[in-house]
Simulated scan of single mutants.
Amino acid sequence: MKALHLIPVDNRHHYINFLLLADEDETIINQYIHEGEMYAISYEGTEIGVSLFTFPSIETVEIKNLALSPAFRGKGIGRQVLNKAAQVFKERRFRDMIAGTSNSSIENLAFYQKAGFRFYDIKKDFFTSYPEPFYENGIKGIDMIIFRKSIQD
Rank of each mutant, 00 (worst) to 15 (best):
M1W: 06
K2N: 14
A3N: 15
V9T: 12
D10H: 15
N11E: 13
H13D: 14
I16Q: 08
I16C: 09
L21N: 06
E24P: 10
I28V: 15
I29Y: 03
I29H: 05
Y32A: 02
E35G: 05
A40K: 09
I41S: 04
Y43I: 12
G49F: 06
S51N: 12
S51L: 09
T60A: 01
V61A: 00
N65P: 04
N65T: 00
A67N: 03
L68F: 12
L68A: 08
S69N: 15
A71E: 15
A71I: 13
R73H: 07
I77H: 07
G78I: 04
G78C: 07
R79F: 02
N83W: 01
N83S: 13
K90Q: 14
K90L: 06
K90I: 01
E91A: 09
E91L: 06
E91N: 13
F94L: 03
R95W: 01
M97R: 00
N103S: 06
S104Q: 12
S105C: 11
E107T: 13
E107M: 08
L109A: 02
Y112V: 00
Q113W: 05
Q113P: 09
A115N: 11
F117K: 01
R118K: 14
F119Y: 15
Y120M: 00
D125R: 14
F126H: 14
T128D: 10
P133T: 02
N137K: 07
K140L: 14
M144Y: 02
I145K: 05
F147H: 02
I151C: 02
Q152M: 11
D153Q: 11
D153A: 10
